[in-house]
Write a protein that binds this DNA or RNA. Sequence first.
DNA 1: GCCAACGTTGGC
DNA 2: GCCAACGTTGGC
Length: 159
Amino acid sequence: MAERPKFWLVKTEPDCFSIDDLARAPRQTTCWSGVRNYQARNYMRDEMKLGDRVLFYHSSTDPPAIVGVATVARESYPDHTAWDAKDDHYDPKSPQDNPRWFMVDLKFEQKFAEPLPLERLRGLPALQEMELLRKGSRLSVQPVRAAEFAAVLKLAGVK
DNA sequence: GCCAACGTTGGC
DNA sequence: GCCAACGTTGGC
């Protein structure tokens, strides 16, 4: 039996969907739609389970930073945005009877008092192997080790 | 805006 | 199945 909960990190561009958007959403929950990368999909489809905790990261902003925590509120189901021809993430190769893309629901847990910029995370011994900090890392849904998750929360001054 | 790193596509 | 070309991501 794999240990639970597992820990994750998701990236989002705050101009598109920020942690404040999540906090304001109905039931403070959103579907994590639009992921179109197979490895990220596999994590969502196969490994993210109810109650897993998720670091919330803002990319393509100044500074890029981990800004809070969410939790998995619903396990994987088909990403319906792949079926909407008007959606930016429409994928004609994802038929309704054999969906290619999946998503989970994420629920707001907390926003850090201060964002933790990438620059502050780099060089921390506990985070030396963290996927987020690897050069060239682009994975938008990635696993986080328990010790890494704990180190990030400690740095943020929260539990 | 640049560009390195990475993923995907498609000709062969 | 190889790999060049292309598109995307995302820090800087």
